[in-house]
Amino acid sequence: MVQRGSKVRILRPESYWFQDVGTVASVDQSGIKYPVIVRFEKVNYSGINTNNFAEDELVEVEA
């Protein structure tokens, strides 16, 4: 279970941040499909630095 402030590695192959490390900004408990919002240092092609992920697409590298 990841929690706010954890450092996580992204396992979603189609993601711009695949294999990159980001910080968990928040975790939604309402039961949505992609409840974990992760914030990154670098921006993607659209200038965005956050994205939603499912918990099984993340691996915690640092608490």
Score class of each variant (00 low, 15 high):
residue 15 S to W: 03
residue 35 P to R: 11
residue 24 V to I: 05
residue 43 V to K: 14
residue 36 V to E: 00
residue 6 S to Q: 10
residue 48 I to M: 14
residue 3 Q to W: 04
residue 11 L to D: 01
residue 49 N to Y: 10
residue 24 V to H: 01
residue 52 N to Q: 09
residue 57 E to C: 06
residue 12 R to H: 02
residue 14 E to N: 12
residue 25 A to Q: 14
residue 52 N to S: 14
residue 63 A to I: 11
residue 39 R to L: 11
residue 59 V to T: 08
residue 23 T to E: 10
residue 60 E to R: 11
residue 23 T to R: 03
residue 34 Y to G: 03
residue 9 R to A: 04
residue 45 Y to Q: 15
residue 37 I to A: 13
residue 37 I to H: 11
residue 20 D to H: 12
residue 54 A to D: 08
residue 39 R to T: 12
residue 44 N to D: 14
residue 35 P to Y: 11
residue 20 D to F: 11
residue 15 S to T: 03
residue 22 G to V: 05
residue 60 E to V: 15
residue 63 A to L: 11
residue 2 V to N: 02
residue 11 L to P: 02
residue 56 D to R: 07
residue 60 E to C: 13
residue 62 E to M: 11
residue 31 G to R: 08
residue 52 N to T: 07
residue 32 I to G: 14
residue 58 L to W: 02
residue 13 P to Y: 09
residue 36 V to G: 00
residue 15 S to L: 04
residue 3 Q to T: 11
residue 30 S to K: 06
residue 53 F to E: 01
residue 38 V to A: 00
residue 35 P to T: 09
residue 18 F to P: 00
residue 62 E to W: 11
residue 54 A to L: 05
residue 63 A to K: 11
residue 7 K to V: 10
residue 9 R to P: 01
residue 55 E to L: 15
residue 6 S to E: 02
residue 13 P to H: 08
residue 10 I to T: 01
residue 12 R to N: 09
residue 52 N to H: 10
residue 52 N to C: 14
residue 33 K to N: 08
residue 59 V to C: 13
residue 23 T to W: 09
residue 7 K to I: 11
residue 50 T to G: 02
residue 46 S to T: 09
residue 52 N to W: 10
residue 41 E to K: 08
residue 62 E to A: 11
residue 41 E to P: 06
residue 41 E to V: 09
residue 57 E to H: 00
residue 22 G to A: 01
residue 14 E to L: 09
residue 34 Y to R: 08
residue 29 Q to M: 13
residue 3 Q to Y: 05
residue 46 S to Y: 14
residue 13 P to L: 09
residue 54 A to C: 08
residue 57 E to Q: 02
residue 46 S to V: 10
residue 29 Q to R: 14
residue 17 W to M: 02
residue 40 F to M: 00
residue 46 S to C: 15
residue 39 R to E: 12
residue 33 K to Q: 11
residue 23 T to F: 08
residue 4 R to P: 14
residue 37 I to P: 00
residue 34 Y to K: 08
residue 47 G to H: 04
residue 38 V to H: 00
residue 25 A to Y: 10
residue 42 K to E: 07
residue 34 Y to W: 09
residue 48 I to G: 08
residue 43 V to L: 10
residue 21 V to Q: 03
residue 53 F to G: 01
residue 18 F to V: 03
residue 12 R to I: 05
residue 1 M to N: 12
residue 20 D to A: 10
residue 34 Y to E: 05
residue 19 Q to M: 15
residue 19 Q to G: 14
residue 23 T to I: 13
residue 31 G to Y: 09
residue 45 Y to W: 13
residue 16 Y to P: 06
